[in-house]
Amino acid sequence: HSHMSHTQVIELERKFSHQKYLSAPERAHLAKNLKLTETQVKIWFQNRRYKTKRKQLSSEL
């Protein structure tokens, strides 16, 4: 499990705020920019979407 830097997370968050789903080319581009693997980016987005979904569910209770 590799640790992401604060800067990388900020960039991922910024991208996520604009779009929740990335196409393969977008993911490849973002990964390259942030010096991450595409898998890391993919998993981060999956986890981030899951967290957002959970938060929405709990706020509706």
Rank of each mutant, 00 (worst) to 15 (best):
L12E: 02
S59C: 15
Q19W: 07
L12F: 02
A24W: 09
A31M: 02
R48N: 04
Q56R: 11
S5R: 06
E38S: 05
T52E: 15
E38V: 10
M4Y: 08
V9E: 11
V9Q: 08
A28N: 05
H3G: 10
R48H: 07
N47C: 15
K15Q: 11
K53M: 09
S58N: 14
Q46A: 13
S58K: 11
Y50N: 14
K15R: 15
I10T: 09
E26V: 04
T39I: 11
Q8S: 03
S5E: 04
Q56N: 13
L57D: 13
H18Y: 11
A31I: 02
K55I: 09
A28M: 07
V9K: 07
Y50T: 11
H29K: 14
L57H: 08
W44N: 00
H3Q: 12
M4N: 01
A24M: 05
E13P: 01
K42E: 15
L30D: 00
R48K: 13
L22T: 01
A31V: 00
R48S: 04
F45H: 00
A28H: 10
S59D: 15
L34P: 08
L36W: 03
E60K: 06
L36Y: 03
K20R: 09
A28C: 11
V41S: 00
H18D: 09
L36S: 01
L12S: 00
K42R: 15
R14I: 07
V9R: 10
Q46I: 07
K55H: 06
E11S: 06
K20N: 09
S23E: 04
K42V: 05
Q46S: 06
Q40D: 05
Q56H: 14
L61I: 13
L30W: 01
E60H: 06
Y50S: 14
L61F: 06
Q8V: 11
Q19E: 04
S59M: 07
S17A: 14
K42H: 09
K15G: 01
R27P: 00
A28R: 11
H6L: 09
K55L: 12
K32G: 05
Y50G: 11
L57K: 13
M4F: 11
K32N: 09
L30Y: 00
E11K: 06
E60P: 05
L12N: 00
M4K: 02
V41H: 00
Q40V: 05
S58H: 08
H1N: 10
Q19P: 03
V9D: 03
H6W: 12
K51T: 08
Y21C: 07
H6Q: 10
R48Y: 03
Q46D: 07
Q40L: 05
R14K: 12
K51V: 10
E60I: 06
N47I: 12
E26K: 03
P25C: 15
L36M: 07
N33R: 15
K51G: 10
R27A: 09
V41Y: 01
N33G: 06
L36H: 02
T52M: 11
E60M: 06
V41P: 00
N47M: 14
H1K: 12
I43N: 09
A24E: 08
S59E: 14
Q46T: 05
L61N: 12
S58V: 15
Q40H: 02
L57R: 09
S23V: 01
N47H: 13
S2C: 15
E13Y: 05
E60D: 14
I43M: 11
H1P: 08
K55T: 11
E13H: 04
Q8F: 03
E11R: 05
V9H: 14
Q40K: 02
R54H: 13
K15S: 08
H29A: 13
R49C: 07
V9I: 13
N33E: 14
K35C: 14
W44K: 00
H3M: 10
E60V: 04
Q56W: 10
E38R: 04
S17T: 09
K42N: 06
S2R: 11
L57E: 11
S58A: 11
H1L: 10
V41W: 02
F45S: 00
Y21S: 04
S5K: 02
R27I: 15
K42S: 06
K15V: 15
T37P: 03
N33C: 15
S59T: 12
R49Q: 04
L22H: 01
W44R: 01
K55A: 12
W44L: 02
K55N: 11
L30G: 00
H6R: 12
E38A: 08
Q40G: 02
R49T: 01
L34M: 03
T7Q: 13
E13S: 03
Y50K: 15
R48E: 07
T39G: 07
T52S: 12
L36C: 05
F45V: 00
K51A: 13
Q56E: 13
H18L: 09
K51W: 12
T37K: 02
K53I: 10
E13K: 06
K42D: 10
L22S: 00
N33M: 15
K20T: 05
F45C: 04
K42L: 11
K51H: 12
S59N: 15
F16Y: 15
R54L: 10
E11G: 09
Q40P: 00
Y21D: 03
K51P: 09
T39S: 08
R54Q: 13
E11I: 06
A31L: 02
R27N: 05
L22V: 04
W44D: 01
V9A: 07
Y50P: 04
K15T: 10
R48P: 01
P25T: 14
E11A: 13
A28P: 00
R54S: 12
L36G: 00
H18E: 15
S58E: 14
P25H: 13
R27H: 03
L34G: 01
Y50V: 10
M4G: 02
A31C: 03
A28S: 07
H3A: 09
H1A: 08
L12M: 03
K15H: 13
V41E: 01
E60A: 07
L57P: 14
A24H: 08
K53E: 08
V9P: 01
H29M: 13
Y50M: 15
T52H: 14
I43Q: 08
A31K: 00
K55W: 05
I10L: 12
I10E: 12
T52A: 15
K42M: 11
R14E: 07
I43P: 00
L34W: 00
F16K: 01
E26T: 04
P25S: 15
L57A: 13
L30K: 00
H29L: 14
V41T: 01
S23Q: 03
H1D: 10
R27E: 05
S17V: 08
L22Q: 01
Q19T: 11
M4W: 05
K15F: 14
T52N: 12
Y50F: 10
M4R: 02
R14C: 13
